[in-house]
Structure formats: structure tokens, C-alpha cells
Nucleic acid binder design. Sequence first.
DNA 1: CGCTGGCACTCGGTAGCATCGACTGCCAGG
DNA 2: CCTGGCAGTCGATGCTACCGAGTGCCAGCG
Lengths: 333, 333
Amino acid sequence: MLDERKAAILRAVVEEYIDTALPVGSSHVVKSSGVHVSSATVRNDMATLEQEGYLLQPHTSAGRIPTEKGYRFFVDNLGQPASLRGSEAIQVRSFFEQAHGELEQMLQDTSKLLGNLTTYAGVVVSPTPTEATLRSVQVVGITDASALVVVVLSNGAVEKHTIELAQPLSAKQIGAASVHLAKHLTGMARSDVRPLPPSGDSATDALCTQALGSLGREGGEEPDQVFVGGTSQVARAFDAIETVREVLGILEQQYVVVTLLRDVLDRGLQVAIGTETGMAPLAECALIVAPYTVEGESVGTIGVLGPTRMDYPQAMAAVAVVSHRLSQRLTEG
Amino acid sequence: MLDERKAAILRAVVEEYIDTALPVGSSHVVKSSGVHVSSATVRNDMATLEQEGYLLQPHTSAGRIPTEKGYRFFVDNLGQPASLRGSEAIQVRSFFEQAHGELEQMLQDTSKLLGNLTTYAGVVVSPTPTEATLRSVQVVGITDASALVVVVLSNGAVEKHTIELAQPLSAKQIGAASVHLAKHLTGMARSDVRPLPPSGDSATDALCTQALGSLGREGGEEPDQVFVGGTSQVARAFDAIETVREVLGILEQQYVVVTLLRDVLDRGLQVAIGTETGMAPLAECALIVAPYTVEGESVGTIGVLGPTRMDYPQAMAAVAVVSHRLSQRLTEG
DNA sequence: CGCTGGCACTCGGTAGCATCGACTGCCAGG
DNA sequence: CCTGGCAGTCGATGCTACCGAGTGCCAGCG
């Protein structure tokens, strides 16, 4: 553990480095840290901090910059929780007041909101389909060879699944299947869905089986959607263009992003710094995550991806507020 | 108009510059253009080409680079239509063979495909709701205070609209409205929708009116969705980080992108180069667009956004092929 | 008349070099 | 244990000289 003065020095270095992206020298620390000792003393402490792995020198005769361990200590012990600046709080409030319509559109916009609030990239992973009950099941013929199974869930989500018809069916036959399905499925949870009792008509039964199949299959396998907002911020946050490319490359891979966020959350982290993300190309990035909930149950994740020298307190505040508001919004419908 | 040799020189400059991003000198042209004259002659011609606005010199004693006008001439008169490289053709084919499921997911993936094929950013604007007829209309209660109008169109699209209920309604009442709506609307085009004849029950009628309202309103006002793929390519394509930021910033604004593509297409252009895009921040970009169709009718747009020094023939081929395949895929369902 | 070889000239980019200054580490003394 | 002082390091900055790719122009040739 660090004694008080070293902690104060570390904090000063981290804060100043976050601010300026320039290595921080002992004299700057004296000016800004509130520790009233000479720069020589600070130098000694900084040397110790370096030995212990909290700081490093890009080269002799330069100031110090924080290491991952340094950021980690800062986040865990030194970052005084920030709250949003007024204008940002307003931005959040008005966003959720006028948020409307399609869930997906809203999540997309939420990712942009996160991007705007933090000047880093905002990420939103769509809710995993909750164990909602089926409110309505319907089959609608589209062409001779295809039909659509439309399912409405109690949480307001609408699913559609295309199924191929082996042979053309009359409107009446499709209607019969639709009714049959609705009768037996309405009100059930998806996981409780069982094969239907025979209806007496073989074409109807075949169609019902197909519909059930699509329901069970897609419900499980459908990948979570990911929305990324503020990609241009990434270009702003890093100045090495190579890094920008890599980070953007990662953000394009939906599956990777989902895994990443989930993984971090599963490890019980709120913040993953550099290699803690588990992804080599993100060595210079930090990730802040938070789950959001519907009726108290965690259903999805939001996050912010920025440089390791991101403004942690501010970004953490933004993520916390947005996840909270989003949960509220989704819960109350 | 340019005489044959000047055209050949211009082509050589454009092609080489696209390849290397370096100003092209007269001796390079001699080596690569196939015109068998001395470099001095080429120099004279290049001076002329510069006077006429096809080329420019970044500074005295440097080679020439194409101007917008130069690119334009190249695209209109010199670019021999390319076809995709074998591996790319395969990529496209296998993509559309295994394309499945949700329209939106597919369009998203299509934008990525375009990005991969061209190494620039791929853009897809979702189909404007075609004048499909209504296949099914259904009202499903979600909570006491809200219900969902689910509409299936003949093209397989599913729309949902949330409506707020003034007061709780029984399942029976909602069912009645649902049936009433279905009876009168099924088979109609959206634009033909008229107020319904009274059903005899005032609650039912109120609900129907609301449902109709949501249908008409959202159908018109819903903004087109935009999918952008390959943003990391943007970071690859430009080396000025400032440009990267600007371009990414533009690509984030869905509305701007839709307008941009539509605008270019409306002007009858296939390619918009630099200021032809009409957007100042895209001065260093070129945009290739193509509509895609469903049953012969143009319903949406795809495009590729890259640097002005993009490989036009190749990118145009990619856009053409993808738009063609996409149209096919959407038409056959 | 158009093309060419030759030539003087331009100017961005690179390498070498001295300087500057922001740092550090260390030490001797309070 | 802290501090002022001091020598030393090393990137950044600015200067100069030089190189070379590339130009424009011109006189001469077919």
C-alpha cells in the first residue's frame, strides 16, 4: 500500500497526464498536488513509485506517466466519484425524456449519447431476450413459398421468423395454423414451449412444427446486437493513427465486442485497463462497463471505450447515469 | 477534349497516383503509360493538362497529382470497367448464398461486405417502405396502458407501433379492435388506408383510430436506416488524422448520410468526387453510389466512401455487383 | 511543326549538428 | 527525513548544407 504522500503524488501524476498527455515532472506535481514538500522529495517518491510499478519514465530525463497498475490504483483508491457537469446532466435528461419509438433506434442513440458525454466511443449491447411470455403468435403468408411467424412478447418485443413452405398453402390453412399456435402458446414462456397436440389436419401440423422450430432455434442462437456510437471520437482520443485503426477494427466486430464487455463484467470489473481487457490491440485502451436492468434484472451492458488516459471519474459517472436512466426507461416501458 | 496522348498521360498519372499517393513525374509516366515519347514531351503535355485544370502541382519541382476534374475525366472516359478479382467474386457469392434472417442484419453485413471488398467505408441505406400491401394487422396488449400494433406487409417487413391506451381495456376489447382492423385493412396499400366504418363499440373505434394514426404517421416519418461498415478502413485510407475524424464524424450522422447518397443519386451521378458531394468535409473523398431494387423498383441505395484517390474501377465494380446481387436477393425473398 | 536532349533552376526532404530546457539522480547539509 | 544544489541525460527544436526528383525552357533535328 502507498503512504499518503505517495498516493497524492500518484494522483497528481495521473490527473495531470490525463489532462495533458505529457509526461509529468516533479515540479508540476509540487504545483498541483497539494503536498507541500520540495520537488526533490517528490522525485524520490516518484522513483519509488516507479520501482513499485505505478509509474514509468518514457526515457531518462523525462517526466513520469502512469502504468496500468498506476491507473488501476487511481481508479480503485484515488478517483473521487464525479458527477456530471450541468450541461451533460441536462443532455442526459432530455435524451431520455424524448427517447421514443423503436428499441433498437433508442439503443443506437444511447451509444451516441455515451460517446458525446465522454468523448470516447460508446457501446451498447442489446438486451438478451428476457424470459418474457408470449403475448401473441401469428403466421402470415408472404409468398407461395414463404411465411412469416410473428411473435409478440410481453415486454413489447416483436420477433419475426421467416419459414419456407414446402408447398403453397391456402390462406385458410395458414389461418388455421395461426389460430392453433395462438391457442396453445399464448401466455407461455418461451422455454416452456412444447410440441403442440395434433390439430387433425396434417398441413396445419407441419406448419406449426416449423413455426415452433423457428421460435426455439432463433430465440437461442440470435446473437446480441451491438451498437457503437462516437467512432469519430476514437480518432480524436488517440493520436497514433495505427491505434485508431486497430481500435476501430475491433469495434466493428460485433461478436468480439459482446464477448469483451460480457467478459469484463463477468470478472466483476467496472473498469478494465489496458491488458486487463484481455485483448492485445486494446493495450492502450480502457473500458468502463455497467449492466442495465429491466425490472431489476440485468439484461444488457453499456460501456465506454477510450484511451487508458481517459478521464475515469467523469466517464464512470456518465456510464453510471446512463445505465441507470436506461434501466428506468426500459422498466417503465 | 483531350487528344489521345494527353488522355493516356492523364490516365497514367491518375492510376499511378491512386497506387502510390505520390505526385507523379514525367519520367514515371513515360515508363508506365505506353506512350512512346520523351519525358520532355510528356512534361509539355502535363503543363497543358495543368493549365486546363486536370492536374496540379503541389509545389514547383514536384510531380503532378490529379484534380477533381482529372478524376472526373478518368472516371467518365478512361476507367476501363473492371470486374472483381476472383477471390472477391467468391466472397460476394458466398455472402449472398448464406445471407439469411433479419433484413437489418443483412444490410448491416452488406455494408461490411462493401467495406471489405473496397477497403473503403461501405454504406447501405435501408429500403424505403415500398408501397406494399398490408398482409396482416393485429393489436396486442402489452401493459394496461400500452398496446402494440403489429403490421405485416406483403414484402415480408414487419412494423410495430406502440400506442398508449387512455384506459385499460380488456383482452376482449383489444381482440375486437384487432379483428375489426384486420377485416378492413388486409390487402390494402398503406396509402389507401381510410378511416374505418364504426364497429358499434366506442372503445373499439377509439383504439382503431389510434392504430390507424400510428400507421399513417410512422410510415411517413420514419427515417431511413443507415448502415455503415468498414469504418476502420477510413482510418486506413487517409493518413491525415484530421480527415479521418471529419469523415467518421459525417458517417455517424445518419440523416446526413441518407441525404448525401440520395442527393448524389438524384443528380444522376454514379460517382461524386470531392466537392461534387456537396459537403465541404468530404472534399478529399469520393463516393460511389448505386440504387438497389426490389422487383425492378429502386428502393434503396448502397455506396462506398473513400478518398478521392480511390481505385474507381475496382470500387465501381464492387458496388455494381453488390447492388445487383442485393436486388436479386431481396426480390426473390 | 512537333519532338527531343540538354541544362539551369526549384524546392521539399533528410541528415548532421549545436543548442535548449525539462527532467532526473545523487549528495551533503539542515 | 527533507531540502537545495548540481551535474548529467536526452528529446525537441532550429539551422545549414546537401541531395535529388522534377520542372520549364530552349535550341536543334527530322
